[in-house]
Design a protein around this nucleic acid. Structure first.
Length: 424
RNA sequence: GGUGAGGUGGGUGAGCGGCUGAAACCAGCAGUUUGCUAAACUGCCGUACUGGAAACGGUACCGCGGGUUCGAAUCCCGCCCUCACCGCCA
């Protein structure tokens, strides 16, 4: 969440920033400022009473020690009223804190100054394109027909054993998944990331800390009996490794990467544009995460973008990079770039990666800090993450773009991992 | 799942009703000493909120939540977790 100190210091600046993100209830800022004042007032009163209680108790102890029992008992009588008052105040203080927190948690992150204004995907700014869009042969097929033709994947089988949106990969299709995962992890390792294999279920604390709760409650699968959530992205367990941690400044940046399946309920989205692998409830993804010094996080963001771009180039996929507009960005992000690959048979762009800088927004909830060597003070770190990459849609584009009448060509970089250069 | 032991600051570990936000040691930081290194010595060394320009104060926190008491790390209750052994099991 946003830092209270920043809101307190300049509420109008916060309002202006949030307006770019199309955040409507700007009066919430005024409510927060008022609630914060109220809270501090209550704390002062409460602290004051507690202080008097503590002092009195010490005096009573001393009186007993000196054998002045009568005086001690007299003093004791005073404590009753004091205690009642302070308990009432503490109750009010706790309520005030809860209320303030409820307000704060509703605020999205402030967008970076470079975020374009706008509400919809059309307002996203295209940064650049790379690669050439392939011309397919006559009778080229969309990937959902290719997967049938070469027996690579079945959604019907998924329906049988689980439900809609749970693909079952088969044969070379399954091997292709495994190859891509291994390729992406190896590339991340080569780029200096430490590989992590995290749990695929997380508790509510973790989901809150990275911002999935309460904002996206309905988008996660919930295991009610144990109070756990299936992860919608590896970002959640990976970033939460550093929840409640104070790092040394020289430990920054932290670079970790992990493969996990990702589970998304995606309630209510059906239709032609979500056919095949375009949007499924379970998909595989390798995620890269960095924890950076606030002064360098935007350089880190650029490096992460280059990493993702490098992967797409090695896979020989045409792609474009979008700078997301305020209305299209996620709740917790300050700046997000989306990578989209061109899926030649569908003749459309598919989002395969989202690279974001969250600045201190997640770190504030995570209580992820580092000790500033200069000032010796603890400061919130910046967190960043990016998909590198999301598999299902990469597979869709790979199959469609590389098809020939005789089979599907596997890009060179992947061949060592698949063990074959052609699906036929 | 059963039984037993235990959860204290970065680590080890003392404390078992007031003098304890917490001994001691180790690690870390700053100095003194020193030709350099080593050693020795001195001081500092948890987090958050809060008052204050600052100096310096206040409050809370000894797994979590309640309770007893004028006063709880210390006593009582509930929960969670860790370890050991048994059972079950990929």
């Amino acid at each position: 969440m946003l830092e209270l100190a920043a809101i307190r210091a300049n509420p109008e600046a916060i309002k202006q920033g949030l307006a770019v993100k199309r955040f409507a209830p700007l009066s919430l800022i005024d409510d927060i400022v008022a609630a914060d004042e109220q809270r501090r007032k209550l704390q002062q009163q409460s602290d004051d009473l507690l202080n008097r209680q503590n002092t009195l108790s010490k005096e009573i102890g001393n009186l007993y020690k000196q054998g002045k029992t009568a005086e001690a008992n007299e003093a004791k009588a005073q404590t009753t009223a004091l205690k009642e008052d302070s308990q009432a105040l503490q109750q009010q203080l706790a309520e005030s804190e809860t209320y303030l927190n409820e307000l704060l948690i509703q605020l999205p992150n402030l967008p970076h100054a470079s975020v374009p204004k706008g509400a919809h995907t059309e307002d996203n700014l295209e940064e650049y394109r790379h690669g050439t869009i392939p011309t397919l042969h006559e009778g080229a097929l969309p990937h959902w027909e290719l997967t049938d033709r070469y027996d690579l994947m079945s959604l019907e089988l998924g329906v049988k054993i689980t439900g809609a949106g749970f693909p079952v990969y088969k044969g070379k299709g399954a091997r292709l998944q495994r190859a891509l995962i291994a390729f992406f992890l190896d590339e991340a390792t080569r780029a200096g990331y430490t590989e992590i294999l995290p749990p695929h279920l997380v508790n509510a604390d973790s989901a809150y800390a990275t911002g999935q709760l309460p904002d996206k409650e309905g988008q996660m699968y919930h295991v009610g009996i144990d109070g756990l959530y299936l992860i919608p992205t590896a970002e959640v367990p990976l970033t939460n490794i550093y929840r409640d941690v104070i790092l040394k400044e020289e430990e920054l940046p932290i670079k970790i990467a992990g493969y996990t399946p990702c589970f998304r309920r995606e309630a209510g989205s059906y239709g032609a544009h979500v056919r095949g692998l375009n949007r499924v409830h379970q998909f595989d993804k390798v995620e890269i995460v960095q924890i950076a010094h606030p002064d360098h996080s935007y350089e880190v963001l650029e490096k992460m973008k280059s990493h993702v771009a490098g992967l797409l180039e090695k896979l020989e996929l045409p792609y474009r990079v979008l700078r997301l507009c305020g209305g299209d960005m996620s709740f917790a992000s300050a700046l997000t770039f989306d990578f989209e690959v061109y899926s030649a048979a569908q003749e459309r762009w598919l989002e395969v990666s989202s690279v974001s800088n969250f600045e201190t927004y997640q770190a504030n909830r995570l209580k992820l800090r580092f000790r500033d060597t200069e000032t010796k003070k603890n400061r919130l770190a910046h967190t960043l993450n990016g998909s590198a990459l999301a598999l299902a849609r990469i597979v869709a584009a790979l199959l469609e773009n590389n098809q020939t009448p005789n089979g599907i060509h596997i890009p060179k970089a992947l061949q060592a991992y698949t063990g074959f250069d052609q699906i036929s």
